[in-house]
Amino acid sequence: MAVTTPPAPTRPSRPTSTAGGTSTAAKLLRLNWIGGIAGWVWLVVGMLPIYWIVISSFKSQSNFFATNPLLPPDEWTLDSYRLVIESDFVRYFGNSVVVTVGAIVPAVLISFMAAFAIVRGGNGWFLRLSNSLFLMGLAIPLQAVIIPVYLIIIRLRLYDTLTAMILPSIAFAIPLSVLVLSNFIRDVPRELFESMRLDGCSEWGTMWRLAFPLTRPALVTVTIYNALGVWNNFLLPLILTQNPDRRTLPLALWTFQGQYGVNVPAVLASVVLTTLPILVFYAVGRRQLLSGLTAGFGK
């Protein structure tokens, strides 16, 4: 439910209210100019840097310093992109994909199992305690526990591996995933579970064949939200890796910046390349992503 909140709820009531009288509708339009101005101002404030990143990344280095920063390049060039891709970008990209997929697939699956058990497993102390623990986990920031996490990773002899980033990412994806998924599973009509039981289906079968497909919107939301968090994570690679070969994209960005210094177009090209996959995701799964971003809070 938390998941589906932001868009729909009051939509149906809207037409009736505007139909109440054209004068009312006109008044609403006329008087909302403060919000309107804010809306358009924010569009400029929010988009200008994005626009600037994109056009600047296509400028040559000399052109960047010579032209008006807000105008498109005189000559579009892919040099910066070529430079970034030659600087091992593909490897960092691969690392990011491995870490993100490697963390999110298991995280979502085990969170789903836990959420199912919490909703369907009755009122036993163990499940209640687990649920409280996960809820408490929402309040633990990764940074505050990064030193012990670092210690644990060293002791597991995982320092400087991709697994070192995957394991804590799974753990920190769990609390919100369980919260969102259990809210959603709770909305599945009880009669459906009953009929599965009458058909002789085990709880395990019910979980995968009934709850899993019905929970799909929430699963997508949770997946996208967590994937964004892992993809953009900076602290874990910073603390848990050392070898440049193990870098993920955000950390690579930071080192690119140190490496290229004044070659701003190259730095910006790396920003574009890093963000591109998420933008594609955004274009495809915008609704799920936006509801995911406020999952658990919008309600």
Binding site: I118, V145, P175
Partner: peptide, 14 residues
């Protein structure tokens, strides 16, 4: 069913 999630969360969170 809670155990896998609990294991991860306890190890790297609690």
């Amino acid at each position: 069913l809670v155990l896998p999630a609990l294991l991860f969360f306890v190890t790297f969170g609690v």
